[in-house]
Design a protein around this nucleic acid. Structure first.
Lengths: 239, 239
DNA sequence: CCAGTGACCGGACCAATGATCCGGTGCTCG
DNA sequence: CGAGCACCGGATCATTGGTCCGGTCACTGG
C-alpha cells in the first residue's frame, strides 16, 4: 500500500473521497468491529455503490492499511516539551497505547506492515528522542524494539480482553479458569483475568523498568545521563 | 472455543480425527500462510470432503484456535531446572518467541483469546515462577503483563517483517524509507529495517531490562533476592 | 445371522463477500 | 458546443464459510 505511488490524481481537486472513505471506515470499525467491515456496508454508509470505492482504493486491504494509519494521527507527538526524554517517550508510548485501546479493532490489524506516514512519524520521533538522549548502537535498537513491541503487545492483549463490552467472554474465561484451578493454581489465584487489577498500573510499571534499563545504559556509557524530570509516569493514560 | 464442552464423544474410539485436522491445519498454515487456509483446501489435504470437517469442528475459527494452541506445545517448560527464576523465565520467553517466529501465521491470530491448554500451562508456569521468586502484588501483574506483552509484540513485529522470505516487502520498505529520508532522518539512518542488526540481541537486551526491573522489586521488598545464576541469557534463541 | 442404530461422510446448495466488466454521467477545457 | 476524462454503479463472477439431507458402514443386541 504505502509503497505504491499515491494514485496519481488528474490535475487538481483534492482527493477528498479517499479521505472520506477512510474516515467512514474508521467510524464503521469503531462501531461494529473488524469483521463487520464490508466494502458494501462501507459503500452504503457513504451513500454510494460498492464498486465505486474501487476507483479510489485498490483493494479492501488498502482501506484497512489506511484506516490503521489514520488512527495514529491521534497520538500526540510531544515534540520539544522540554520535560526530558523519559517524559517524552512515556507520553508517546502512553498515547500510542491509548489509541490502540480506543480502537480495539486495530489489534487484529497489527500484524500487517505499518508504513503509513503517521506511524512512521511517530517511530521517527521515538528514534530521534532516544538518539538525542544518547542511546546508541545495539542499545538503540533494543530500546526502540523493546518499547514498541511492548506497546503493541499491550494493546493487542488488552484489546483481546475488553474490560467494558466483553463481559461475556471475560466472565466465561474467568469461570473456565476457576473450574480448572487445580491445573492452573497460580493463574486462578493471581491471573490477570481474576485479580481485575487495573492494567494501567501494570503497564506503567513495566514501562519504567524498560526506561530504567535504557537509562542505565546511557549513564553507564558516559552520556549526560538521566535528565528525566520525574520518572515520566505523568504521561501514561489513566483511563 | 475453549469454553465449550469438548464435543462429547459417543462412547470410546479416541477422536483422532480432530487431532489430524489440527495437525494438517498447522502444516498448511506453515506452508502457505494464514490467508490460504480454507476449509476446502484443508479437507482436500486430508483426503476428505470439506463438509466432513464440520462434524469434528464447529467453525473455521475453532480450527484456528486449535492450531494456535497446538504450536505452543513446542515451547518447552523449564520446570525445576534449578537454574534460578531468571534463567527459567528467559528460557520460557525465548522458547515462546521462537515458536512465534517458526510459525509466522500465528502473528495474525494473536488477537484472539488464547485459552488453550498449552498456552494456559505456560502462563501458569510463568506466574508460578514469578510467585516463587517472591514477586507479589501489583509487581506480579506488571511482571507477567510486561513479559508476555513483550514476547507477543516481538513475535508480531518480527513475523510482520520476515527476514528470510520477505525480501521483497522488506527491501521495498527499506527503499521507501530511503526515498523519504528527509522526512524520517533518524529512521532512515538507524531504523530497524535499515541497520539489519540481528533482532535477537535486541530482544535479549530489552528482556534483561525487564528482568532487572522485576528483580529490583524483589530485593527492594526484602525478598531472598537475586538468585539468578548468570543473567539467564543462555536460554534465548539465537537463530 | 440380521436388523437397526448411531457415528461419520459428502454432494448439492445457500448467502455473503471481494473484485471486475462495461456502459453510463456530468463537469471542464479548448 | 463538443470531446475527453474523472467518476459512478448495476450486473456479474469466483470463492468462501456453513448447512441440508441423504447416504455408508461398523458394531451390537437378539
Amino acid at each position: 500500500m504505502w509503497l505504491r505511488p499515491p494514485a496519481r490524481r488528474g490535475r487538481d481537486a483534492p482527493p477528498l473521497s479517499r479521505e472520506r472513505i477512510v474516515e467512514e471506515a474508521v467510524a464503521l470499525l469503531d462501531a461494529e468491529g473488524a469483521d463487520r467491515l464490508t466494502m458494501r456496508r462501507l459503500a452504503e454508509r457513504l451513500g454510494t455503490g460498492s464498486t465505486t470505492l474501487y476507483w479510489h482504493v485498490r483493494t479492501k486491504d488498502d482501506v484497512l492499511d489506511l484506516a490503521l494509519d489514520a488512527i495514529f494521527a491521534e497520538v500526540g507527538i510531544p515534540s520539544g516539551s522540554g520535560r526530558g526524554w523519559r517524559a517524552d517517550i512515556t507520553a508517546l508510548i502512553g498515547g500510542w497505547r491509548a489509541v490502540l485501546l480506543r480502537h480495539p479493532w486495530s489489534a487484529a490489524l497489527l500484524s500487517r506492515p505499518m508504513l503509513g506516514p503517521n506511524v512512521l512519524a511517530r517511530s521517527e520521533f521515538l528514534y530521534a528522542t532516544l538518539l538525542e538522549a544518547g542511546v546508541t548502537g545495539p542499545r538503540l535498537t533494543a530500546a526502540a524494539y523493546g518499547l514498541s513491541n511492548y506497546v503493541i503487545g499491550s494493546g493487542l492483549m488488552q484489546a483481546t480482553w475488553p474490560a467494558d463490552t466483553g463481559q461475556d467472554v471475560r466472565g466465561a474465561a474467568r469461570e473456565h479458569l476457576r473450574d480448572n484451578r487445580k491445573r492452573y493454581p497460580a493463574l486462578a489465584a493471581h491471573g490477570p483475568l481474576v485479580v481485575e487489577g487495573d492494567w494501567d498500573t501494570g503497564f506503567a510499571l513495566a514501562l519504567t523498568w524498560l526506561l530504567d534499563g535504557i537509562q542505565a545504559g546511557i549513564t553507564e556509557a558516559g552520556g549526560a545521563g538521566g535528565s528525566g524530570s520525574g520518572d515520566g509516569t505523568e504521561g501514561v493514560t489513566r483511563a
